[in-house]
Amino acid sequence: MWKQVQDALNQSATAFITKFASLLPGFVALILALLISLLLAWIVGIVVRRLLSRIHFDEWLVRRGLLSVADWSPARSPTLLVSGLIAGAVVVAGLLIGVAAFDSELTSALVRSVFAYVPNVIGAILVLIVGNIAARFLSRSVLIGAVNLNLEYARLLSAGVKWLVNVLAVAMALEHLKIAVGIVELAFGILFGGIVLALALAVGLGSKDLVTKSLERDAGKPSAETIEEPLRHL
């Protein structure tokens, strides 16, 4: 009886050690691949950073009017952003190589599913970028227009528009990523409606005078400004 138990234990220990021994090279390869890719990423990052600094990449972006890129970047430097992205890509490649050494089937399945999801991610990133640019443009338009109309709540309006567009963009991006679609739709509806209602209340209460003036002008009554103002610009 004791002999049989001992045999069973020996067999399971041998099987475990054999299995572990068969996996060990894969683990070592994974760790090595990771370490090498980290080293490579560090070197590539430095090279790219120096290269971009030498060609004055940040200034070039500013000259091209792509200021918003700087806002997303670490330390407001697009050079750091680009070099970081490239270094990250090298690390991910190293990880995939390491996983392939560990289990090639698992890797191919992982890669297949990752690649199937890539278009969604790219689409979501594009939606976010376009949404951010549109939000900045529209909020700036609203801010300048409202200030030129002498509206005291110009910043509030501008911030409201910016958040509206950003919320819309984030909701669209999450929809693209197929993350909790139902919840996102519901949350977006509530948030969007809330912002519109808040803006409507704030602007409506603050712009009684403006509406009155506008209605007077529409009714054909000449405003006091046109009659009395002696300034002539052109």
Partner: peptide
């Protein structure tokens, strides 16, 4: 000179 249209000054 034409009169000023303040809403269109910008």
């Amino acid at each position: 000179y034409p009169p000023v249209d303040w809403t269109n000054l910008s």
